[in-house]
Design a protein around this nucleic acid. Sequence first.
DNA 1: AGTGAAACGACCGTAGA
DNA 2: TCTACGGTCGTTTCACT
Lengths: 146, 146
Amino acid sequence: MDDVSKAIIEQLQQDGRRSYAAIGKVVGLSEAAVRQRVQRLIESGVMQVVAVTDPLELGFARQAMVGIRVSGPLEPVADRLAELDEVDYVVITAGSFDLLVEVVCETDEHLLELISGSIRTVEGVVATETFMYLSLRKQTYSWGVR
Amino acid sequence: MDDVSKAIIEQLQQDGRRSYAAIGKVVGLSEAAVRQRVQRLIESGVMQVVAVTDPLELGFARQAMVGIRVSGPLEPVADRLAELDEVDYVVITAGSFDLLVEVVCETDEHLLELISGSIRTVEGVVATETFMYLSLRKQTYSWGVR
DNA sequence: AGTGAAACGACCGTAGA
DNA sequence: TCTACGGTCGTTTCACT
C-alpha cells in the first residue's frame, strides 16, 4: 500500500467507473499498471467497487440500528443475525451492547416482525434496543481523505 | 424504478465495473439503453458506483459507534459532527440516543482525541457512549436481495 | 512492477422510431 | 425510452525491460 495505490483508491471513491487510462493520467502510471493494481487491491480484499443504493428511493422506508445484549458466546449469535436478509450490518462491540445490527425494512409491520419474530427469537439474545432512523445526515465511503 | 432497473442495480452491486454491454445481455437491453439508465440512476441519487475499502487494511485499526445525547435542536449538532473527517456516518435517531455516529481512527490516542476533543466539545452534545468495534461480521451493500 | 504497441471491445453521441 | 450505427477511446494481450 503505497501512495500511488492510495491515489488510485481515491479516484475510484469519487467514481467507481472511471477508466484506468484516466486514473493513470492523474496518478502518473500507464493504463496497464493501474489495471493490475486495481485487480490486486480487489483480490486482496483491500477494496471493492460496487453500487450502493438509497433505501428510501427503493421503497425501504424504515431503517434502524438495533443494540443487542447477548448471553454466552457472541460469534454464533452475530452470525445467525447476519444470515437475515433485512440485516445489512453486524458488528460485535465492547460496551453496553454486545452487538450492533443495522436493519432495512419496507414498513413498520415488516420491521416489527423482523425484530420481534426473527432477531429476538435467536438463541442467546436477551435484550434489544431499537434506534429508528429519522434522518441520515452523512454516509461516506471515503473516510480518512481530504 | 421498474424490474429492469433493479436488475441493472443488482449487476452493479456484484461488480461496479461490469460493462454496459455485459449488463445489457443479462437484462435484455442494448448497451446504450443500459448506459442511459445507469446515468439516470446515478444523477437522480438512487445509486452510486464507488470503491469501498477495508479500514483495517489501510491502517485504521480503531472503529467505533458513538451514541450521543443532545440538548436542543439535533440537525445543527449532526451537521457539525458530519464535518469531521474521522466521522463516516451520522444518523439522527429516535430512542435513548439522539444521534449515532460511526468513527474511523488509526490509534487509540487518535480516537480519544476525536471523542474527547472534537465530538464532546460540540455545542449541544451532553453525553456520549462509545461502542468499540471488536469484529465486523457483516457489511452488505445489496440488502433486500436474494 | 513497469512500459509500449496492435487487435479487440467498450463507450459515446446522434439519428430515428 | 428504446435501437442502430460510426467514431473515438479504453482494454487486453504480449513481448520487452
